[in-house]
């Protein structure tokens, strides 16, 4: 470790430290979802047939559209950092805005998907669901919890993006100080990462 840097860190802001902190936080998020993935893995192992049956009721197309939407939002997010590094503030704002818009598309899509399921009585405690086998009940339980928790993260992400747009506008985040935007980006990519696994686990594997 170069100590002149460490000393500097005492006096100036420590972007490097901020990034370490953010990554550590992302690990906690990863493990938070990881716990759910463990539950999923165990139940798929125990109730392979029920899971297979239930997963066929999800619409792969909806899942795929949402995957593409999130991947694209990750792209715009990543590019917004390049933009601010080059000092192109307006472009950066536009890209963060695009990220936010795509997140909204994701949520709307999710909303229609969930309400359709609810209409079919496939919600926790719903009569339709309780008549099914244990494996299917657990599958839908996990489906709602995992995609729900993910959706909450998307919503939080949208709030963060809105703040970032304001910060970019006021110059609080600028060409020389953009670690906040970088960290928001890291968060957003993690949300994307989680979805990259949720998508095959719920929509693709039967």
């Amino acid at each position: 470790m170069n100590h002149s840097n460490a000393v500097q860190a005492h006096m100036h802001r420590d972007d490097y430290g901020a990034k370490i902190g953010m990554w550590l936080f992302l690990f906690t998020e990863l493990i938070l979802f990881g716990g759910l993935f463990i539950v999923y893995a165990v139940y798929r192992f125990t109730y392979g047939d029920g899971f297979s049956l239930a997963s066929k009721e999800l619409d792969t197309l909806v899942g795929m559209i949402n995957t593409i939407v999130l991947l694209t939002s990750s792209l715009t997010m990543a590019m917004s950092i390049t933009a601010i590094q080059q000092g192109r503030r307006r472009l950066s704002i536009g890209l963060v805005g695009a990220t936010n818009a795509l997140a909204l598309v994701f949520m709307v899509n999710k909303y229609f998907e969930w309400t359709a399921k609810f209409h079919h009585g496939l919600f926790p405690g719903g009569k339709e669901l309780l008549e099914r086998t244990n494996g299917e009940i657990l599958y839908f339980g996990l489906y709602y919890v995992m995609t729900g928790l993910h959706a909450i993260h998307v919503l939080i992400g949208m709030v963060i993006m809105t703040f970032m747009m304001v910060y970019l506008k006021t110059g609080h985040v600028n060409k020389d100080s953009f670690v906040k935007l970088e960290n928001s980006g890291l968060y957003w990519h993690l949300v994307d990462l989680i979805w990259i696994f949720l998508f095959p686990l719920f929509y693709l594997i039967h």
């Binding site: 979802f33 839908f140 339980g141």
Partner: peptide, 26 residues
């Protein structure tokens, strides 16, 4: 985080009746 999510799962299980750990739901 593992215990965080586990306790949250018990909360949703109790509050919303989502089947996760309850043996009655498998």
């Amino acid at each position: 985080p593992i215990v965080g999510i586990t306790l949250l799962l018990v909360v949703v299980e109790r509050a919303l009746g989502v089947g996760i750990f309850d043996p009655a739901l498998g």
